[in-house]
């Protein structure tokens, strides 16, 4: 019996010396290296990495989408909004919300555009009940025109659809030159268009400045003589192959000249479009000096 005890004791002490401590065993259980090895063997680490990447990607997409909500419109999308904003603000003075018959001007203007080569050009017209501006092209998108015409102005001269369309064609040429748009564009607008204002206070002053610019141009600045000369010459060149249109244009300028000289209501016309009298002279054939 004593021998058996001794043997057991010696085995126990041997075992205690050779094997690890219980604490060490516990450490073994939570040995991350071991866990990692097991996970590696099972391919779970790759799965975790894959999931992490997916989560990161989704977060990035969401963040990009959220950022996009704070975008400034692009140039093409800004101008229709700015123009409509001005028209809405000017509704009481321009008086476009009025009853009117269908003048059939859309077809007539489309026909003129087609005749002079503006094929597939889209446009939108707005009739106003105010005498001023008599007619005007406003900045819009690159592939569409936005035009305004005064019904009292057209009515006072009993203008035909063709004559109104010719006036609007003048405005198309003016818009192509970009004079009104350039005048109304605030200095900082180009930097803002298409930019992002996340984490910033949105600065909408440019849209208000554009509105002020339109009003100032129409009421104070107007087109210069040089600009009018350029447009008249361009109109002449465009209409020369169509004598009936060219003659109608000259007659129209004569009508306007008589109106602005004789009717006080339309005397401000020359402030915006100087001067019908000069336009007629510029269209006259040059006298040859022998």
């Amino acid at each position: 019996m004593k021998i058996l005890f001794l043997l057991l004791f010696s085995f126990n002490s041997l075992a205690q010396n050779s094997t690890t401590l219980p604490q060490e065993k516990e450490l073994d259980v939570v040995d991350f290296q071991n866990v990692k090895d097991v996970l590696k063997k099972d391919g779970l680490m790759q799965e975790v990495q894959k999931k992490k990447k997916e989560v990161l990607k989704i977060k990035e997409i969401r963040s990009d989408e959220e950022k996009k909500l704070y975008n400034w419109p692009t140039d093409n999308e800004f101008w229709p909004i700015a123009t409509e904003y001005w028209l809405v603000k000017q509704a009481p003075t321009l008086m476009w919300d009025f009853d009117r018959p269908d003048y059939g001007l859309t077809q007539s203007f489309a026909s003129i555009l087609k005749t002079v080569g503006y094929i597939q050009k889209r446009f939108r017209l707005l009739a106003i009940d105010s005498p001023s501006p008599a007619h005007l092209s406003l900045p819009w998108t690159s592939d569409e025109l936005c035009l305004v015409f005064s019904v009292p102005f057209a009515r006072s001269m009993d203008l035909s659809k063709l004559e109104i369309s010719l006036l609007l064609l003048e405005d198309v040429l003016r818009m192509e030159e970009g004079w009104l748009k350039d005048f109304a564009t605030p200095a900082n607008l180009k930097d803002l268009l298409g930019s992002n204002f996340k984490d910033k206070k949105p600065d909408l002053t440019p849209i208000f400045e554009v509105s002020k610019g339109y009003t100032k141009f129409i009421q104070e600045k107007g087109f210069s003589f040089q600009q009018q000369f350029t447009i008249t010459k361009k109109m002449s060149a465009i209409l020369k192959p169509h004598p009936e249109l060219w003659n109608a244009y000259v007659r129209l300028l004569g009508k306007i000249d008589r109106l602005v000289k004789g009717n006080q209501v339309f005397s401000s016309y020359v402030k915006l479009y100087p001067s019908p009298e000069m336009q007629i002279r510029w269209l006259a054939p040059e006298e040859k000096i022998l």
Binding site: K121, F123, R124
Partner: peptide
């Protein structure tokens, strides 16, 4: 209201 008043067109060939 403005969108009720626009007259839209296109110069078709």
């Amino acid at each position: 209201r403005l969108h009720d008043h626009w007259e839209e067109g296109v110069a078709k060939p």
